[in-house]
């Protein structure tokens, strides 16, 4: 397995009148070829900024991005053009991310036209191929976005992103504005395309059940920091960071017989403008102590499972102990949702 993209201590700050807004703060991770990295977090945690910074839609403030081993952090001109062919993005809102004056065909072909590598005849052929690929009827080629529903528009967005056969695609909430039945169609399409072309994805979403479904690895973000990083299934089985635990417990479950015990977080996300040093979750954390005011580092507590909480082991032990006291027999329930669904 080889690494496609590596991010080292990436920082993206925005200047505001009140000081620097730390949208992405010291984030590091790698994505393997053909894998999907899910990034979850609540609104304003910096997940979209991270995605955009990675494909050069935003300039990083500090840090390094390596694409196939090459440093692409500060590339310009021709090199950037080349990089863009390999790194694409599917946007959240298929309503505002399509040019209303472009037909479906124009939209899908735009990247090809800009690359100046295709003849007219080739473009025609490519248009048909791409429309078939993402499942848009060829008769819709000359339709405008306003004539299409959300699901089809998102298919157009996907077609445009895949037009130049990129290696890496950032999916920024690609299904959150769609109805469930359409959402499932698009998720399946994205999965099929990955299988067929060996694409590497970074999948940004706030929907935890979607992220679990599509990802190999998951990063949990809170106010610009990476708080936990682990293989997907593992994260849902044994979440270790207090924030991850609360986040998972807050998802309304369709399992009506084993209701989850909710961890209700007090308060709301504080401001990311000139944040105080230390763990940013501490003001809402039920386990916070004095020692939390020191910057936290990601530590590998289990193979491939990283957590940025200095009390993680302690909290795990505490939870296990509590569980034993309550129900010595039902240790398994410590898993965030139990595994009894396959009965």
């Amino acid at each position: 397995m080889s690494t496609l993209i590596e991010v080292k201590n990436l920082k993206k700050y925005f200047q505001t009148s009140k000081g620097d807004l730390h949208a992405v703060d010291d984030v590091s991770f790698t994505i393997e070829k053909g894998h999907t990295l899910g990034v979850v977090g609540e609104s304003g945690c910096g997940k979209s900024t991270l995605g955009r910074t990675m494909i050069h839609l935003l300039e990083p403030t500090d840090g390094q991005i390596l694409f196939e081993g090459e440093d692409v952090t500060r590339i310009k001109g021709k090199a950037l053009r080349q990089f863009r062919e390999n790194a694409q993005i599917i946007f959240q809102d298929p309503y505002s991310s399509l040019n209303p004056r472009f037909t479906v065909k124009q939209t899908i072909l735009e990247p090809l036209v800009l690359s100046k590598r295709f003849s007219k005849a080739e473009l025609e052929k490519e248009a048909d191929r791409l429309m078939d690929l993402v499942g848009i009827d060829r008769r819709l080629a000359l339709s405008y976005p306003h004539e299409l529903d959300g699901g089809r528009r998102q298919r157009v967005g996907i077609g445009r992103a895949l037009a130049l056969n990129p290696k890496f695609v950032v999916c920024d909430e690609p299904v959150s504005s769609l109805d469930v039945s359409i959402q499932a169609q698009i998720l399946n399409l994205i999965q099929d395309l990955q299988d067929e072309y060996g694409l590497t994805f970074m999948f940004i979403t706030h929907d935890l059940s979607v992220v679990r479904h599509v990802s190999d690895h998951i990063c949990v973000m809170y106010m610009g920091n990476l708080v936990e990083k682990s293989p997907a299934k593992e994260l849902f089985k044994t979440p270790m960071h207090p924030y991850t635990k609360a986040l998972l417990s807050a998802i309304p479950s369709i399992d009506i017989h084993s209701p989850m015990k909710r961890i209700i977080l007090e308060g709301e996300v504080t401001s990311p403008v000139e944040p105080a040093p230390g763990c940013r979750f501490a003001p809402r954390c039920p386990y916070a102590t004095e020692a939390c005011h020191v910057d936290q580092e990601l530590r590998e507590l289990q193979p491939d499972h990283f957590v940025s909480c200095h009390r993680a082991e302690e909290i795990m032990k505490l939870a296990a102990k509590k569980q034993e006291e309550k129900e010595p027999a039902a240790e398994k329930q410590a898993d965030i949702r139990g595994e009894g669904k396959d009965e």
Binding site: D179, S181, L187, Q191, L208, H213, V214, F236, I251, I254
Partner: peptide
């Protein structure tokens, strides 16, 4: 049934979702 089939679950091991065909 289609609505339930469209939902990725938090516990299942489904590799594919079963969406409802077509559009509303």
């Amino acid at each position: 049934l289609g609505l339930f089939g469209s939902l990725p679950t938090l516990t299942g091991d489904e590799t594919r979702l079963h969406p409802i065909d077509g559009m509303p």
